[in-house]
Design a protein around this nucleic acid. Structure first.
Length: 559
RNA sequence: UGUCCCGUGGUGUAAUGGUAACACAUAUGAUUUUGGUUCAUACAUUCCAAGUUCGAGCCUUGGCGGGAUAACCA
């Protein structure tokens, strides 16, 4: 039977790709320019990664470029600390911007344009207090009231605005507003504020300015200055679009266009910068790069690769409907990547001694192990083996259930890459706790196969007691217990949903000796346990591994 | 309650008027020196109603449901 293939089939495009392809086809633009516009007031998180992959990805796909532009219009909240981390994270993700810009680069131009709008009679200086402005804005159902200062003369507005810039007024004393419509059904069109007075040092412009443009006036105009063709942002800016267009139209400048997509929500995690900041400030986590944080630096420390994050972002799609992506989706992307790339090693997290009674007392053997069965070029390594080993405590059961394939009295298993062993007895202390397991081995099964062709159901990992090395291993679980952490009972906050067991520290893990010289961020698969990455805290004499995620486990799941 | 956006398997995304596809998850089975990987199979008539049409997930109207929006934040 022939497989039906239709080479003329239209590739499935997301709505942004469709818009771009149409613009290109119809000659609206010859090439495209996007931008990633973070405010330097926090660290980037996985939600930003979606936006980064989108903006840089779209530009790359259609042969365009992407600018990095810091939206630094509010000096009271922003800091260079954040600028540096943002740049580092974008590059780590694998993207390079065409230009590094700042909204503050455009303050003079923005000011001149504001003057132009005043001259056109479209903008005025308002003396109302913050409260009055709020009052007079009306509500979603009730129209607002015009400011008593709304009809000042152009000359007076010009003079006042100039004085605002010169620093004649205190914070809040005067603001500049666009004169649109105080009864507009869209609240953002009710004479929106363009400039406010903030007498604060700015991390880039210093004390040069004491008036700062608001987002609505700065963002679209910055897009226009840079000739951004497609200004892509999240859904909540949809209601700002009429204003975005209004300024550009009145200013008669390059017509950038704004398009909105649904932000990423990940189950069991919070994404708002405010909440993440709170977790850091109130010490619920150790910092922005705590391995349980959904920040880029947190995911990096946890052991995620840039490739896995990019693949994740590409796989979740882009649309306009609200969504909650299953956290497992991120883990899938990680496993898919690391399965092909991470070398396998053996590590025992909860060690119990296994003594091979019929193995020669002082003998040591070297056994060959495959580094990565998914990648032949990864080669092999040598594992030391001797009479006393450590195995995982839960790889032994005295009274096993029916389908338990691991070690149990009189049950034979394979020690990976080593021998078949059969459990003969256990040692116990006075309380009845098992202190060691005894077994015998079959010398003919060296390497893990018996010449008589006999099969064993289970294969377990181990390390040699004499030559293994110690390590600390940090086991992470989801930070929150609920799929939607902010969904809480009356009187509770998302903090009430914090998972008290999100971090478990194993201090006496035993690793095979090949792991002696690892560096921070090195990644491995600990066979049968999961993917692990070396933490920044790791030192030569005190290794620290982070569990990035477990392997899929169809055994514990059904038990 | 005004305005705007959005409703397709458990979760995401596709189907661009021609009879619901892909991925994740889940379940079962096969293979396996990782209870991993890989492979196979199963799992929705598209929020509701009416209309247009030979034909509607897609177009129209009306409901219903979810979200955004009333910072001198972005």
């Amino acid at each position: 039977m022939e497989v039906q293939t239709n080479s003329n089939e239209r590739p499935s495009l997301n709505f942004l790709e469709e818009i771009i392809e149409n613009d290109l086809k119809n000659g609206v633009h010859k090439s495209i320019l996007t931008r990633f516009p973070p405010e330097p007031n926090g660290y980037l998180h996985i939600g930003h990664a979606k936006s980064i992959c989108l903006n840089f990805g779209l530009a790359k796909k259609y042969g365009g470029k992407t600018n990095l532009r810091f939206d630094d219009t509010n000096p009271t909240k922003e800091d260079v600390e954040y600028v540096d981390s943002i740049k580092e994270d974008i590059q780590w993700l694998g993207f390079q911007w065409a230009n590094e810009f700042y909204a503050s680069d455009y303050f003079e131009q923005l000011y001149q344009w504001a003057v132009k709008l005043i001259e056109k009679g479209l903008v005025y200086v308002d003396d109302q207090t913050l409260d009055e402005i709020r009052q007079n804005r009306g509500t979603v159902q009730l129209p607002g009231k015009d400011s008593p200062y709304r009809n000042r003369s152009v000359e007076e507005n010009l003079k006042l605005f100039s004085e605002m810039r010169e620093g004649k007024y205190a914070d809040g004393e005067k603001i500049l507003r666009a004169k649109i419509d105080m009864a507009h059904p869209n609240m953002h069109m009710r004479d929106p504020i363009m400039y406010r007075i903030i007498n604060t040092y700015h991390h880039r412009t210093g004390d040069k300015w004491c008036i700062y443009p608001m987002y609505d006036y700065a963002h679209g105009e910055s897009d226009s200055i840079e000739n951004i063709t497609h200004s892509i942002c999240t859904l909540e800016f949809d209601v700002h679009r009429p204003l975005y267009d209004w300024f550009i139209e009145k200013l008669e400048i390059f017509p950038s266009h704004q398009y909105e997509f649904a932000r990423l929500n990940l189950s069991y995690t919070v994404m708002s910068k405010r909440k993440l900041l709170q977790l850091v400030k109130e010490n619920y986590v150790s910092g922005w790069d705590d391995a349980r944080m959904p920040t880029i630096c947190g995911l990096r420390r946890r052991g995620f690769t840039p490739e896995s994050i990019r693949n994740f972002c590409d796989s979740i799609g882009v649309a306009k409907r609200d969504n909650i992506i299953d956290y497992g989706r991120l883990e899938f992307a990680l496993r898919e990547d690391l399965n092909k790339r991470a070398n396998r090693v053996m590590a025992v997290l909860d060690p119990i001694k296994l003594i091979i009674d019929n193995y020669p007392e002082n003998q040591t053997e070297e056994l060959e192990a495959i580094n990565n069965p998914e990648d032949e070029t990864a080669g092999t390594r040598v594992l030391p083996f001797s009479k006393e080993l450590y195995i995982e405590r839960d790889d032994f059961m005295e009274n096993p259930p029916k389908k338990y394939f691991r070690l149990a009295p009189n049950q034979e298993v394979r020690l990976r890459y080593a021998y078949f062993v059969t459990c003969t007895s256990v040692d116990k202390d006075e309380e009845g706790n098992i202190t060691a397991i005894h077994c015998t081995y079959d010398p003919a099964s060296k390497g893990g196969n018996s010449p008589d062709g006999r099969k064993v159901k289970g294969t377990i990992h181990w390390v040699c007691a004499k030559s293994c090395i110690d390590a600390e291993v940090r086991l992470f679980d989801r930070l929150f217990m609920n799929e939607i952490p902010e969904k809480v009972e009356e009187g509770q906050t998302f903090l009430d949903n914090l998972n008290p067991d999100s971090l478990k520290i194993v201090s006496n893990a035993k690793l095979e000796p090949s792991l002696k010289d690892v560096k921070a961020l090195d990644k491995f698969q600990f066979e049968r346990l999961g993917y692990f990455s070396v933490d920044y805290d790791s030192k030569e004499d005190n290794l620290v591994f982070n569990r990035t995620c477990t392997l899929k486990d169809s055994w514990t799941k059904q038990n």
